[in-house]
Design a protein around this nucleic acid. Structure first.
Lengths: 243, 243
DNA sequence: AGGACCAAATTGGTCGGACCAATATAGTGC
DNA sequence: GCACTATATTGGTCCGACCAATTTGGTCCT
């Protein structure tokens, strides 16, 4: 579902999900390339390209004689997206871990951005925050500008490590949240408080303060998202999908 | 260098490094599979498997008509290892960014581990810290136990997101540091202070305190490593390698 | 019965050639 | 200079084949 429309990618997606769903246990022998080719009615070459992707993800380890399945714990970060997109219901624990991780990284980025920004960049940040504040009553509408602000701070902070991590995380996660219609019920006061603090810290170039505010904001977001997911789960329990 | 001994992996490694060295600019057309097959005197199938890996890394994007090189900024986290292993000299900025990122993640892990550990796990942690303290005068010797402690806390904290990130980072980085003989000159007092604080915070189950101590420790480590790398660079400038 | 050893079957790695469809390119005509 | 078309290039897939490493199953010896 996530990749382009080539056969090898389709095979890779299917096998990846099967592994993530624990259909094969860690250490198990993986079906042979010839068997898989027969199963998917594809050539061995296509299967091999698919397996090459799975190996890159750290999900399998191939050797002459046979491939073996590896533990998901030993996989690459790139499996997180597919892992969260496995079912129609989000795993609350995984989402919480994601948000917690994203929180500390964002706090760090915020701190470094504000502390290291040029005067022009500070003005740019200030402007973005002001624009955000002007529409702080519409959660959906402020998402694009919110992303803009995070992107700007990420650019200013210029930490390649964090950027690479974010590449593997952000897109997939936010998309999945939106797709499932998870709408965290954040209190307006909470957002306003964050924006005010940001404005102050930008003015006084106090990255530390901004980072803490961001961290606190994400903690509130974590709770709100957790509740939203739990609520979602209840609803879908009472009224199963397939409407 | 990093992968097994198959031809496709060799090709992938070479091309990956060429891209990371900016030999092809972002947006450039990538050589055709047939050209690459000729260049490496390999079959197109082997080249295709190599390209499949590069695509998984987010370094190229293939389409009928031709593949194009993507920006390193848009790549997967898995390129970080190869990126740091490119030259015999470490990029001080990249190392600093890595350590800073690792610091906040480790601090978070430490906090969660201590706050969420079972009584038995607390005892285990305490024991590891004590063992570490008993050999805190030999930086090299304490590395294995140090990794043990981090691993234990990672297991207890049980945050899959952080674990996946660490998978892509830790091994490559530490190995590269050791290989290049970067020996940060950490003051013994600094380590002792950390260990003492850890012992206290484990006793009182104060994850917050432990996290802060860990963060502070990493900041000192960052400075020490930075200095060690700069020193290393000076030496190799005066006396070029190829001894 | 158990363990060491050996041969056959299985498996991954590579090669070469072939075809198709999508894309890029060069050429043409306006 | 621009739009359009024919051609060449390129990636995606398939097939059949061979090799080397590993696994497997059986044999033999103790």
């Amino acid at each position: 579902m996530s990749s382009s429309n080539t056969i090898s990618h389709e095979i890779a997606d299917i096998l990846r999900d099967e592994i993530l769903r624990q259909r094969y246990l860690s250490g198990d022998r993986f079906p042979s390339e010839r068997d898989l080719a027969a199963r998917f009615d594809a050539s061995r070459g296509a299967v091999r390209e698919a397996l090459s992707q799975l190996e890159q993800l750290g999900l399998i380890h191939t050797q002459p004689g046979g491939a073996r399945v590896q533990s998901v714990n030993a996989a690459s970060l790139a499996v997180l997206g597919p892992l969260m997109a496995l079912d129609e219901h989000l795993d609350p624990l995984l989402v919480d871990q994601f948000l917690q991780t994203f929180a500390v990284l964002t706090a760090m980025t915020t701190k470094n951005a504000i502390n290291g920004a040029s005067p022009e960049q500070l003005i740019q940040l200030q402007q973005l925050v002001v624009e955000l504040a002007s529409q702080s009553d519409d959660f959906e509408a402020m998402q694009p500008r919110w992303r803009e602000l995070l992107e700007a701070m990420s650019t200013i902070a210029d930490n390649l490590v964090v950027r690479l991590i974010s590449n593997d995380l952000k897109a997939q996660f936010v998309a999945q949240m939106m797709k499932l219609g998870v709408r965290p019920d954040l209190k307006k006061g909470s957002i306003d408080r964050l924006l005010t603090t940001l404005r102050v810290s930008i003015n006084e170039r106090d990255g530390e303060l901004a980072g803490e505010a961001m961290q606190k904001h994400f903690e509130e977001l974590r709770e709100a998202v957790g509740e939203a997911i739990r609520f979602k789960a209840e609803v879908s329990y009472k009224a199963p999908r397939r409407a």
